[in-house]
């Protein structure tokens, strides 16, 4: 049984529709990412999952339970880290852990949890005196202290330095290794690419794509980036005409071609035919960033990528 089932979720605030027909399922033990630009409806979606908001339409089930009718039961199995929510300034780390333990049916022993999250040295510190990274680790600890089956982490690494972010990623992987499902809301592509088994890209309240991070990248219109400095000028029109090429940019004599593996072959043979040397030739996979922009940006999206989990897009294409 999937631990999260969301089907046809809709939520509007006044006249503004924030979530417009979102559906996805998350299997037990997955790290599932919800990715999208700011204001896409990510937070509202997870708030409906957690029972903090009542959907206007659609169904939500967490381990088969409806968060609307059985809030208390869902809260026993779901731990949550919210954006922009703090603790009492003078509450110590130890007091926070003890307090939150008292809410749950089967709380985890908070001591090893604090140890694992590097909080043992700060147990007597007050919340207000903690660094950003320490606060985030405490929030993870509080989300885990009830021994949940599912944790929801909303924009967890926003505001952390790169080192703190890496450390947090390692923690999230440990959490999953201990058997807890993770629902991760983020707008960092790198984070989703690094951590998530599957990602739902949400844009303007809808699921624009749902796939593994590598599936999203390879499904993008231009999954490969070729860059080089030619020994002699090459017409960009000529390059754009090559099979699979999507765009060509030039900067300080260096050319960058977005395309596919086919484009790589074509570029190499074109240059060989002309006897042009490609200095510092680099061929790289596009990042999830590129795929994301491809999906949500207003770039020439005349050729929607064939995402298996986006039947609506496929149907539209069939008609057009």
């Amino acid at each position: 049984m999937p631990i999260i089932e969301v089907d046809g979720l809709r939520k509007a605030y006044g006249n503004r529709t924030v979530v417009d027909g979102v559906s996805f399922t998350v299997g037990e033990g997955e790290i599932f990412g919800i990715l999208g630009p700011n204001g896409a409806g990510k937070t509202t979606t997870v708030e409906c999952v957690a029972g903090l908001r009542v959907p206007d339409a659609g169904t939500v089930r967490v381990a088969g339970i409806d968060p609307r009718t059985d809030r208390d039961e869902v809260r026993q199995i779901l731990g949550m880290q919210l954006q922009e929510s703090e603790l009492q300034a003078k509450l110590t780390v130890r007091e926070a852990l003890e307090l939150y333990s008292a809410f749950y049916r089967r709380p985890a022993d908070w001591r090893p949890l604090a140890e694992r999250l590097g909080l043992t040295a700060h147990l007597r510190s007050r919340f207000a005196s903690l660094s950003g990274g320490q606060k985030q680790r405490l929030f993870i600890a509080l989300a885990l202290v009830g021994s949940p089956r599912l944790v929801v982490l909303d924009e967890l690494t926003t505001g952390l330095d790169p080192r703190g972010r890496r450390d947090t990623w390692a923690l999230i992987e440990e959490v999953r290794a201990s058997g807890v499902t993770v629902l991760l809301v983020t707008h960092f592509m790198e984070e989703a690419q690094h951590l998530c088994d599957r990602v739902a890209v949400i844009d303007a309240g809808r699921v624009a794509a749902l796939d593994t991070p590598s599936g999203l990248v390879s499904g993008a219109a231009s999954p490969t980036v070729i860059s080089f400095t030619p020994s002699e000028p090459v017409g960009s029109g000529e390059l754009e005409a090559l099979p699979g090429a999507v765009s060509v940019r030039e900067r300080d004599g260096r050319l960058t071609v977005d395309g596919t593996d086919e484009t790589v072959d074509a570029v190499v043979s074109l240059l060989a035919r002309r006897g042009i040397t490609a200095r510092r030739l680099r061929i790289a996979d596009a990042t999830l960033d590129d795929a994301f922009l491809d999906l949500t940006g207003r770039t020439p999206a005349s050729v929607p990528a064939p995402f298996p989990a986006a039947p609506a897009a496929a149907a539209e294409r069939g008609e057009g």
């Binding site: 903090l52 731990g79 703090e86």
Partner: peptide
């Protein structure tokens, strides 16, 4: 202050 700093909101994600 508890409401402004999201302390009430955080608590509402728990069984309390």
């Amino acid at each position: 202050g508890y409401r402004e700093r999201g302390i009430l909101r955080r608590l509402s994600t728990t069984p309390a």
